[in-house]
């Protein structure tokens, strides 16, 4: 869907911000660009909708070289979300969300329907917010509206530049989850800049790690955690990469590997119930926080067994390492 082919960006005469980057992003995937600040991830993103010019190489969206397209047309067909949401303070929420459809002169009926649909999608009441202004919304609500605006004209591709970076951790996590749900429905091809490895693991179908303008590794999160290609990637993903990779696996995965224990000692033990969809990292932290000695696992509201720390450890040894 999106193909980077030897893409290079040089500022002035010497400074190579992006250096010969090539990789492909399949349709419907979220690929997270990860790396320290100044590593070239944002520049790479901004070359896709030509907010930055491409010095050398080519970027293809859906088989078309972006440099062959009209710059304005190109941008209108690509959703764009930035860190501080960039909502226009002088416009109402409706006008903000409908910014691109307004540029494309959609008719009123189509715009109203689309606005209502998008607001429902991001979980804000369309009528309540229609005539409100951005400053009347909380940071999390503003960011949701920013996402709705990027999706307004239903672009197949979206660029997101640290979209949740300015939010506090609790709200960030909630919006990440909501966004993943929306993505299941809309299946956009998304390039997502982040500097947070946990966010990358959570959001990405693929992760592209950058350093000094070079692409260090481009792989699925589990591959990246299991087999970092070089010292830089190893260090960047952290000592606890095994632990991190647990968040990619659910209790369901564990069940497929080994039998659950019998849910015994209903009275004796300090217990807590989770579902099979819970990821193993969360399960482990509940166990470690000593909220429970063992966890009761439910599938479709039926108790299917129990698990302990040993089970997670065994799975980790067996499957991930």
């Amino acid at each position: 869907m999106i193909k980077f082919d030897g893409v290079t960006k040089v500022y002035g005469d010497k400074v190579k911000a992006v250096d010969d980057v090539s990789f492909e992003v399949p349709e419907g995937n979220i690929v997270v660009f990860l790396g320290p600040s100044g590593c070239g991830k944002t520049t790479t993103l901004r070359m896709v909708n030509r907010l930055e010019s491409i010095t050398e190489g080519k970027i293809f969206v859906n088989g078309t070289d972006v440099n062959s397209l009209n710059q304005i047309e190109l941008r209108r067909n690509i959703g764009y979300v930035i860190q501080h949401n960039g909502l226009f303070p002088n416009m109402t929420i409706e006008d903000n969300v409908m910014a691109v459809p307004n540029l494309l002169s959609w008719d009123r009926k189509k715009k109203t329907d689309r606005y209502n649909h998008l607001m429902d999608l991001i979980g804000l009441n369309p009528d309540e917010y229609r005539k409100r202004y951005p400053h009347e919304l909380s940071g999390g609500q503003q960011q949701r509206v920013g996402i709705a605006r990027a999706m307004a004209a239903d672009p197949p591709v979206m660029l997101m530049d640290e979209p949740f970076g300015a939010l506090d951790p609790v709200i960030r996590s909630r919006i990440q989850n909501e966004f993943l749900q929306i993505q299941q429905e809309v299946k956009k091809t998304i390039l997502f800049v982040s500097h947070d490895i946990d966010e990358a693991i959570k959001m990405g179908d693929g992760i592209a790690i950058f350093e000094g303008g070079k692409l260090m590794q481009y792989d699925s999160p589990s591959e990246l955690l299991a087999r970092p290609k070089n010292e830089f990637v190893r260090e960047f993903v952290g000592q606890d990469r095994a632990l991190k990779s647990l968040s990619l696996h659910t209790v369901k995965d564990l069940i497929s590997e080994r039998m659950l224990r019998k849910a015994d000692g209903l009275q004796k033990h300090n217990k807590k119930t989770i579902t099979v969809e819970t990821n193993l990292r969360d399960a482990l932290s509940i166990l470690l926080n000593q909220e429970a000695d063992q966890l009761f696992v439910q599938a479709n509201n039926k108790l299917v067994g129990a698990m302990r720390i040993d089970d997670v450890e065994a799975y980790l040894h067996h499957h991930i390492k």
């Binding site: 907010l51 304005i72 930035i82 960039g86 226009f88 691109v100 540029l103």
Partner: peptide, 26 residues
Amino acid sequence: DPDLLDAAKGIGYTPAQILLKIELPN
């Protein structure tokens, strides 16, 4: 805020539209 101008550019406003719809109103 430069972010506003970046957002406007990124979603496909022309320079004239940025001036009339973003810069002057703000």
